[in-house]
Amino acid sequence: MTDVNTKGLEPPDEPEAPTNRPPSMERIRTWLSRPYARGIVILSLIIGVLLLPMAWIVLIPMNVTGAPASEIMVNIEQTVFVFTLVSVPIVSFVYAVLVYSLIKWRGHKGDSIPEDKSPAIRTNTIGVVLWTAVSAGLAFFLVVWGLIELAQITSNSYGTVTADQQPGGEQSIIVNVTGQQWVWTFEYPQHDGVTTDVLYLPKDRAVYFNVTSKDVIHNFWLVELGVKIDANPGAITQTGVTPTKVGSFNLRCAELCGMHHAYMETEVEVMEIESFTSLMREMGGGKTA
């Protein structure tokens, strides 16, 4: 048996007097009295604090072109924010172990085989249980949050409504979106079938999209409004949104559709309902539905 290197690994001295602290606190204190335990905990906290701003930082590039322009996009950004926050603890802990190992647990260097000096820990029940509980708990939280957000977004995007069930009420707009290589066309059935190649949308009105393709799979992505659905040939997919911001936004194709996939972009013009209605009328369509 080789010499055990106990430098820095000595168990702590006995406390001088019995205390009233509960046993579990005692165990935590004992564990924390080990220098590496303290080191890793502190390092986790430091890394955690450094990583925490990521939750806000990731939203900056997302909003650089005017997002969020709808409730859906707000939901999406909330999700990204919360997920980043929730990931920070585990990532910080793992990175803390990596860093601490590289700094404090450096051992042998060179070509010769080192002697066995590390403690032969085959398992640690507390560690395993804690990790499982925390990761399962976090995963569960993410699932529940995600499901709630998904339900919210689904209702915000009216995505489960089929083409013939869409309300043609006074307040809502229906747009038939056709993707084809390599251009988007929009038809407004409620306005005498006016066809445009720029997507005009009214603010604060529910908009339903029926999406299809004339050739290959495209993807209808209203970037700042957080709308995305494939345009499939031979099928009609539905989604919807209520734009909440006036402005000029981007529609990009997000599924490779051939040579000029990169150019399959167009503008999304969100305007007040009065401007929208007069624009439709100008283009030849009174409201017929």
Partner: peptide
């Protein structure tokens, strides 16, 4: 079924 390329069934 939906008729290809249109929004009709």
């Amino acid at each position: 079924p939906a008729i290809f390329g249109t929004f009709q069934q």
